[in-house]
Every structure is written in C-alpha cells, then in structure tokens.
C-alpha cells in the first residue's frame, strides 16, 4: 500500500509541471469539444437553473434569452436566443469550457479551466467555476433553444 501511495504522489507531482488543462488539445476538434465531459445524464431543467441562478452559473449576468422567466438579463455577451439552431453541442461546450481558445481577447469567462490563471480567490484556487456535469446540463439547456 505504501508503495502505491508513493507512486501516486510521484505521478501527481509529474503532472503539476506543465499547464494542467481540464480539456486536452486532443479533445478539441475544430471549434468544438464533441464528446461530453462526463457520462452522467444531463438535464435541460437543471441547465436552465444553472443558467439563471446567482449562486450557480448565473449566465444571465451577461446573456439574455427571449422567453426566459428572469428579470434584468445582461447584454455584455451575445443574445443566446435560438442558440441550439446556430451551434452544435460540441461548439457550445468549447465556448463554455474556455472561450479564449477561439478569441484570446474574449470577455466570456472560462468555466472549465484552471491553468494560466492569476490571483484567484483562495476558496476557488485550483478549481474550475463549474463541474463537468454542470456544463453538460448547460449544453443540454442551450441546445434545446431552437428559436
């Protein structure tokens, strides 16, 4: 058992050398991450909740969706009404994971990235904003918006 523990510590240490990316280059195809980040089943309902609620994704800080029952939706980012008709699930996934891969100057925060970050608050250090499953819920919700 001791040997295994030592081996695990060594391999962890080896990983922390380079940037630790939650999504590897190989998972990105063109401007998309085609494969889901987890096998757990995603829910449109959950996704809508994460999109709206302040203590969860709170995407309406910057985005609006027509017909969504939430006051004061932001407009720093583009209107996401009908997004499911414009982007594939894989394209939506990459934009939530790390939009800076497509536009280095983007204002859209990276929701599933921990490398190359600066001065992150102590409680959040080393953690992505959202979990893999939360992102899958959001993808399910956004792809359901078809016009």
């Amino acid at each position: 058992m001791k040997l295994i523990a030592v081996f695990m510590m060594l391999s962890l240490a080896a990983c922390s050398d380079g940037p630790v990316s939650l999504v590897n280059e190989g998972d990105i195809v063109g401007d998309a991450v085609p494969a889901p980040l987890t096998d757990s089943v995603a829910s449109i309902e959950e996704g809508r909740g994460i999109f709206v609620e302040r203590d969860r994704g709170h995407c309406i800080l910057c985005h609006q969706v027509d017909g969504l029952d939430a006051p004061f939706q932001g407009n720093v980012g583009p209107d996401l009404t009908g997004l499911g008709a414009r982007l594939t699930p894989g394209q939506i996934r990459l934009r939530i994971v790390d939009a800076s891969r497509l536009n280095v100057d983007t204002v859209m925060p990276p929701y599933y990235r921990v490398h190359g970050m600066n001065q992150v608050a102590k409680e959040q250090a080393g953690k992505p904003v959202l979990t893999a499953l939360e992102i899958e819920h959001l993808v399910a919700y956004l792809r359901s918006l078809e016009g």
């Binding site: 970050m117 600066n118 992150v120 959040q124 904003v129």
Partner: peptide, 9 residues
Amino acid sequence: NTRRGQFNL
C-alpha cells in the same frame, strides 16, 4: 489591464 480571478477578467 491584467486579467485575474476565476473569471479571468
């Protein structure tokens, strides 16, 4: 002008 924080802004 330096990006910072978990939101990288």
